[in-house]
Structures are given as structure tokens and as C-alpha cells.
Design a binder for these strands. Structure first.
Lengths: 203, 203
DNA sequence: GCTTATTTTCACGGATTCCTGAAAATCCAG
DNA sequence: CTGGATTTTCAGGAATCCGTGAAAATAAGC
């Protein structure tokens, strides 16, 4: 994509502010479905779209939110790796600046969500699988039965087979997601964009 | 992956039920972060893990939820394409059966979320872009200014450039997501698994 | 070390989402 | 058609998530 110098039309500060505001709102709406609160998304949007480092009071002021909310949201954004703390000379306040790269932002979001959602789920699935799987040898299961002298009859082989097959399918899906995550979101910076490019090039 | 016949150990009905219950809970927890309610996810989990078609009363009974909730959740799941209505002869009740393929499930979820979240966002972004972009020719912007005889000064060229660049980056990211979605989630059945396989094979 | 500026924490209340239960609508057999 | 069986709808209450504001903690300047 060629990057030619663009001559932007004259836009008033009010118009720019209106556009920014709309972006903040649109982004904020998206937030909850991404696993971040609306405010958190709005704060991020504000920092991203203006590009300027802002301090807590700036954020409070522009978004009309409380100090507590601003503080929590900013901290969470730092933890997600979406913004960074910076210190300006001659100013005691802490400033925050958004990562300018949209892909790196997407990467941060995906990474966090994999960590918080997929990994625990995978752990649970392994647990569950062990309760009825061929790796849980009969001794263990017998012990579990005895524990409360299980009076229930053996389950039908069909039911067990279905259960295990579907559980395995689920595990396998989540493993794939996890592996792809590590591969394309893990450590490298450009992994995600690379993946997207690769997929786009395929017939 | 070779599929050998497996000899499952003897598992009591109580143990199987416990494992199913755990699966339902794990899945239910995941629900909200996927954009479906906890109950909806639980209902799906129940249908998926047992494999049997169940009717509304079965679901109410097994999950201890109200008729209204069961009805709404089942309907929503049908709309998402995650389960299907079936009719058993000699029974007036409607039964529901989960799609047995985990990948097709993932595909349904992704498709719906693209439709509900990415597309509207993209539309908003185009809107916003037009307010300050080089495609919004000066006449339009001037008109907007005049409308309320905008008294604010022109915004700094730097601010406008940053704004437009970042907006463009965002638009481009979302367009890529959208394109990949259409390509790999759109109509074909095995698109998603194919994509995952492709990515896994790349160094 | 003391004072003031700044940030963080957290109990409370507000807002939103979710679920219930009963009434209304729909469906089907006879 | 009619009656009972089944499903859907929806107002209101329950549960959950979110934001506020003030107090506590921390950090910086003197």
C-alpha cells in the first residue's frame, strides 16, 4: 500500500473533537463483548485516537468519569499491555499513552483472553476427561465408586463413548486454539499480522 | 491421529452424570465471555455432551431453570445455529439436538459475533472517517461548519493527521478481520478447521 | 520528617443483565 | 371446533456488573 502525502481538508477543532467522541463511543460499545468494561474501552479509545499522552485528570475530564474509575481503568489497560505509563519532565503526574499499532493492540487482547479463558477451560476439560477416560484406569474409578459406595448401575457403553468422543473433540479444538495462540500471539510482535496475511493469500 | 477402538472402563451412571455436570458448569462459565448468557451456554453444553435430543422439560429439569428461560435459551441457540429442532414421532413435544461437530460450533459462534459486532463497528468507523478524511471534500466539511456557524479554529494539521492515520489503521484491521471471516467462516463447512490446519503447518 | 500532591482502594448505590412464573398464544388430535 | 398439550411472551424481581466518591496509602518536594 503506497503512502502518499495526504492533504487533509481544513477541519475545525470542534469537528475533530466530535469525530473523536464518536470513535470513543463506538469503541466503548464494543468493549463489553471483548471482555473489557465499557469505560476501559473508552479510555483506551481516547488515548488511541488522540495519540497524546494524558494524565488521570485529563481522562476524568474528557470522559466525565470518577477518579476511581479512571484509576482502575488505566491500571487495567496497563496490565493488558494496551497502554503504557510515562513520565513527563517537570510534571509530577503520571501520563498514559496508547500503543499506536492496531495489530499489537489486537494481539494484546487475544493474548489476555487466551490466558484468562481458554487455559482454565482446557484445565477443566482435562479434569473432566480423566473421570471417564481410558487413561483413568479402572482402579481409580472403582475407588471413586466405593467412596460413597456408589449404588448406581454402570452407564451404557454407548453413552460413555459419546461422552468421551465429544469431550475429546472439544479438547482437541481448544488445544488447537491454544497452540495457534502461542504461535501467533505469543512473543513476537508481528505474529498476528503475519497470520492474517498468510490466510489472506491462500486461495 | 489413529482412531483405535477404545475399551472404556466401567463407569457408573452417577459418575457419568457428575462428569456431564462438570462439563456443563465449565461451559456455562465460558458463556458470558463468548457473548452468550450463562444459561444459554449451559443448555448447549448439556445437549452437546449427552448427544441425546432433549425437550424443554428435560432441559428445565436437568438444569433447574424456569420454563421461560429454557424456551428463550433454546430459541436463541437455534438462531445461532448451534442446535436444531427435531420432532420425534409419537411425541408432540419439540426436541433439540446439538450439532455434534465442535468446529462447526466454533464457526457458528464466530459468524454470529462478526455479524453482530464487527460489521456495525466497521460501519461506524466509515462514518467517522468521513468526517475528517480526504474523501470528505472541503465543501461538506464547510457545510458542517456553517450549520451552526462553527466558531472554533481549525484543528492542527498534526492532530488531524494522527487522527486519520489511526482511524485508517483501525479500519484496515477490521476489514481484514471481516474478509477473513467471510473467507473461512462464511458459507463452507470446513473452512475454519482448514484455516487452523493451514496456520499450524506454517513454520 | 513533614506537607502537599497524586494515586489507589473499596464499601456502597446505581445500572444493567438475567431469570422466573404466570398469562397469552399456538398447536394438534379427535 | 374444542380441549388439552405445548410453547412463547413479558412484567417484575433477583443477581451481577459497574461506577462513584471519599478515605487511606503512597510518592515527591522542601
Amino acid at each position: 500500500m503506497p503512502r502518499l502525502p495526504k492533504s487533509n481538508p481544513p477541519v475545525s477543532t470542534a469537528q475533530l473533537a466530535a469525530a473523536q467522541e464518536q470513535f470513543v463511543q463506538a469503541w466503548g460499545q464494543m468493549g463489553p463483548s471483548w471482555g473489557v468494561s465499557r469505560t476501559m474501552a473508552e479510555v483506551h479509545a481516547l488515548l488511541y485516537i488522540t495519540g497524546d499522552p494524558l494524565n488521570t485528570d485529563d481522562v476524568m475530564d474528557k470522559l466525565r468519569i470518577s477518579r476511581g474509575n479512571a484509576s482502575m481503568s488505566l491500571r487495567a489497560l496497563v496490565e493488558w499491555g494496551l497502554i503504557e505509563r510515562i513520565h513527563l519532565r517537570g510534571d509530577r503526574k503520571e501520563y498514559f499513552r496508547a500503543d499506536a499499532d492496531a495489530w499489537s493492540m489486537a494481539r494484546a487482547v487475544i493474548r489476555e483472553r487466551l490466558r484468562r479463558e481458554i487455559l482454565p477451560l482446557l484445565a477443566s476439560l482435562y479434569d473432566i476427561r480423566d473421570q471417564t477416560g481410558e487413561h483413568a484406569d479402572a482402579a481409580i474409578i472403582a475407588a471413586a465408586s466405593k467412596a460413597n459406595s456408589d449404588p448406581t448401575p454402570p452407564a451404557s457403553p454407548d453413552a460413555i463413548r459419546t461422552h468421551n468422543e465429544r469431550l475429546d473433540a472439544m479438547v482437541s479444538l481448544m488445544q488447537t486454539v491454544d497452540r495457534l495462540g502461542e504461535r501467533f500471539v505469543g512473543s513476537e510482535g508481528k505474529g498476528l499480522k503475519l497470520a492474517a496475511t498468510l490466510l489472506s493469500k491462500v486461495i
